[in-house]
Simulated assay, not measured.
Amino acid sequence: MSVEATGNTRSVVTPTTICEILVERAGADPDVFLGNEHLSLTELQIDSLAVLELQAVIVERFGVEIPDEAVTMTVSEIAAVVNENL
């Protein structure tokens, strides 16, 4: 898991973490993320079921809920939402 430790006890969730979850738990093709950081999950053809799985994993691992609109967000935007709510 790509979670970087900071100077305090708080962890930082990276876009790589989000991609890994989508690949490992939702079956997304890892190649779709390469060079496409500016595209939303919808534009990357990540379906709503994969987003539901992502939401469940984020709640389980980090105790943070991501919005239902996550399908219209980029991986970086989702990571930012998680980090803002840690």
Rank of each mutant, 00 (worst) to 15 (best):
V3W: 05
E4S: 06
A5D: 10
T6Q: 11
G7T: 14
N8D: 14
N8P: 01
N8C: 11
T9I: 15
T9L: 13
R10S: 09
S11K: 12
V12L: 14
V13S: 10
V13W: 06
V13H: 06
T14Y: 03
T14K: 08
P15K: 03
T16D: 15
T16A: 13
T16N: 12
T16I: 09
T17K: 12
I18T: 05
I18Y: 00
C19Q: 14
E20S: 15
E20F: 00
V23L: 05
V23Q: 03
R25H: 11
R25P: 07
A26D: 00
A26N: 03
G27C: 06
G27M: 06
G27S: 04
A28H: 07
A28S: 11
D29C: 06
D29W: 02
D29I: 07
D31W: 05
D31I: 11
D31A: 13
F33Q: 01
F33V: 08
L34E: 14
L34K: 11
G35N: 03
G35C: 06
N36E: 05
H38V: 12
L39D: 02
T42E: 10
E43F: 08
L44D: 05
L44K: 06
Q45P: 12
I46L: 07
I46M: 05
D47C: 03
L49F: 06
L49Y: 04
L52V: 13
L52C: 12
Q55F: 08
A56T: 09
A56G: 10
V57I: 08
I58N: 01
E60T: 11
R61A: 03
R61Y: 13
R61K: 13
F62G: 01
G63F: 10
G63I: 04
G63M: 10
V64S: 06
E65V: 15
E65R: 08
I66A: 00
I66M: 00
P67A: 13
D68I: 15
E69Q: 14
E69Y: 15
A70G: 05
A70P: 04
V71G: 07
T72A: 15
M73L: 15
T74N: 04
S76P: 02
E77T: 05
E77N: 05
E77S: 07
I78T: 04
I78K: 11
I78Y: 09
A79L: 04
A80D: 13
V82M: 00
V82W: 00
N83S: 01
E84Q: 09
N85Q: 07
L86V: 14
L86Q: 04
L86I: 09
